[in-house]
Write a protein that binds this DNA or RNA. Structure first.
Lengths: 225, 225
DNA sequence: TCACAAGTGGACGACACCGTCCACTTGACC
DNA sequence: GGTCAAGTGGACGGTGTCGTCCACTTGTGA
């Protein structure tokens, strides 16, 4: 009410803003090297900052993760807009998928952030997600209308594809060839000509389940070496 | 030398063997619910056993994981044998992929075990893996010779596909529809008729990187809610 | 230049998990 | 039934992370 969350945004003292920036850089680096649940203290040390400063700026690990990858999230949203603007809807669709996968591949830690849970941002970003979802639906319909995207493609299939790719790059963080190969296979199977026989029914997933535009998701936990 | 590892196998006292069994059941349950790095003490408690007993039987978490999912690993190996025996190599290939994915889908925690690292079993299971690898190669060649599997399919693509599916079911543990959908898409894109345009070069992966037959792999870490 | 609110660092208590140790129990074999 | 090695449970010390608290520093606006 009174404090409109000056925890982030501007309105910070100059040195504080500088530190905030350093923390985000350090967070991306540390998350890339040691995974998304690296100790907070490690991030602080790398940023040349005390733990207290880190916690003051980002009270939860989640808020740090979200802020650290906000730029990637925005890129995803922008790419969707560009895809919609493309006169060739299939090319738009293809670029959308390829670009998001490229982001997942390049920014270590982003994939993990991508599937990690952000249950509290649900209300907050509801409209953003709905807009994104509508846009995606439009893109899919157009690409189908042109006869490029198979008719039985369901918007949730994009979520499925992105999450799988995400899992792959998490398992093999440095194997770009594997990632590219999967992307190519999936794109080919999304083409209308590839349709042979019926597919099993689509998942009930929606964008709600995937933070394409700083949204959020569900989930449990994976392994460890 | 002197003690030929009676830690597992028979030769255990009756009560000890009973406990061992209980531990494995408990481990599968706990891994399914809380992920593969749930506290050892939780597994012990669930098995109605002290921690010491657990550690005596399975000195490392890895050995516990491996033992807990040994059955699933064996099933994978058996399915490969069956696939080779199938007069229709494509049907064999298809069943192999579908069955392994089904295992990943059904046994929570198995996918995580599947991608988790088992660096020390490398030497130990070297022959088993090589045999598996050769079998797989044979299966692929046969399916290609028949004109069913696309000519540019590379054995490592199976690893890629399995790891992606693994990631998907880890992210969405209860969404069978999503899993089935992905499997269907991938199988269709592996068909010879689906080939349109060149694929990017295959990954350098081999079965070495995937514990199809109780083998092992590499890796780093994923997220956490 | 000064005063003070904003910002800072690191020590600290709480907590969770690990893996070992040891005194006690129990199954197997005579 | 008696002996004893095999087996057992739980307490315990060690380690690593969390998140807070508070005395100190520093930027800002007058």
């Amino acid at each position: 009410m009174e404090e409109p969350s000056r925890i982030d945004g501007p309105g910070l003292r100059a040195d504080a803003r500088r530190n905030r920036g350093r923390i985000l850089v350090a967070a991306r680096a540390v998350f890339a090297e040691r995974g998304i649940d690296a100790p907070m203290a490690t991030v602080a040390r790398r940023a040349g900052v005390g733990v207290a400063t880190l916690y003051r700026r980002f009270p939860t690990r989640q808020s740090l993760v979200r802020a650290a990858f906000a730029q990637q999230m925005e890129t995803c949203a922008r790419v969707l807009t560009e895809a919609l603007a493309d006169p060739d809807p299939w090319r738009g669709f293809q670029r959308l998928f390829e670009t998001v996968c490229e982001l997942q591949r390049e920014e270590q830690g982003f994939p993990a952030a991508f599937v990690a849970a952000f249950p509290d941002s649900a209300a907050e970003h509801a409209q953003a997600r709905e807009g994104t979802e509508r846009d995606l639906m439009t893109l899919v319909r157009r690409a189908q209308a042109v006869g490029a995207l198979r008719a039985d493609f369901h918007p949730s299939d994009l979520v499925v594809a992105l999450l799988s790719h995400c899992g792959l790059v998490t398992a093999l963080p440095h194997d770009n060839a594997a990632s590219r190969r999967l992307v190519a296979y999936l794109l080919q199977s999304f083409r209308a000509e590839a349709a042979r026989g019926a597919l099993p029914p689509p998942s009930a997933l929606s964008l709600r389940d995937l933070p394409l535009a700083a949204g959020d998701s569900q989930r449990q936990r994976p392994p460890r070496a």
